[in-house]
Structures are given as C-alpha cells and as structure tokens.
C-alpha cells in the first residue's frame, strides 16, 4: 500500500498503523499511535513501580546507616 501524500495524523485511514500510514511523511509515528505506545509503556513501568519495595533494600539502608554512624 502506498503512503498517502498528505497524512493528517492517520485520521480516516483504513490502515492507520505501520510503515504505510501509521507514520507521516517524515517517518514519525502519529500522535494517536504515540499516545497508545505511551499508555502501554507507563502500564509496563507502573507494574514494577507498584510492587512493594523488597525487604532487602530496607535492610540494606539500615546497614548502610549503621556503618556510617560507626565511622
């Protein structure tokens, strides 16, 4: 499928994704696709963020604090 000459952000495209029309003529991904990617990216990232901090890190910080005080 040939790229359209004037891609208005993928609106009204029958294939709004991929090389042919998900990108505009400068090879950049259009706003809507960017939004979708951003949403997924944050979901992936927030999955880890929302995990409780493992105990090993609390213990490590306590240990570091003790070692600093001793000096």
């Amino acid at each position: 499928m040939a790229a359209r000459d004037n891609d208005q952000g993928g609106m009204g495209s029958e294939n709004a994704f991929g090389r042919s029309s998900g990108e505009n003529s400068e090879g950049k991904v259009d706003q809507r696709v960017q939004g979708e990617i951003g949403k997924h990216l944050r979901a992936f990232y927030d999955d880890v963020i929302n995990e409780p901090v493992p105990n090993r890190f609390m213990e490590l910080l306590e240990q570091l604090e003790r070692s600093t005080q001793k000096r």
């Binding site: 709004a16 994704f17 090879g27 950049k28 991904v29 809507r32 997924h40």
Partner: peptide, 26 residues
C-alpha cells in the same frame, strides 16, 4: 525515542494484522 516509537508501532502492527487498521493496538 522517535526510532523506538516507529519500531514499536511496526512490531505491534504486525501482531495485529491489517484487519483492524482503525486502531491496531486495541
């Protein structure tokens, strides 16, 4: 960042095929 987005769009579009072009990710 721009290349990463293009590549992701490409990879995810391949997953979705062409049938649901209006919103490939969904």
């Amino acid at each position: 960042v721009s290349r990463a987005r293009s590549r992701l769009a490409e990879l995810l579009a391949l997953e979705a095929g062409e049938t649901y072009g209006a919103d490939a990710l969904s």
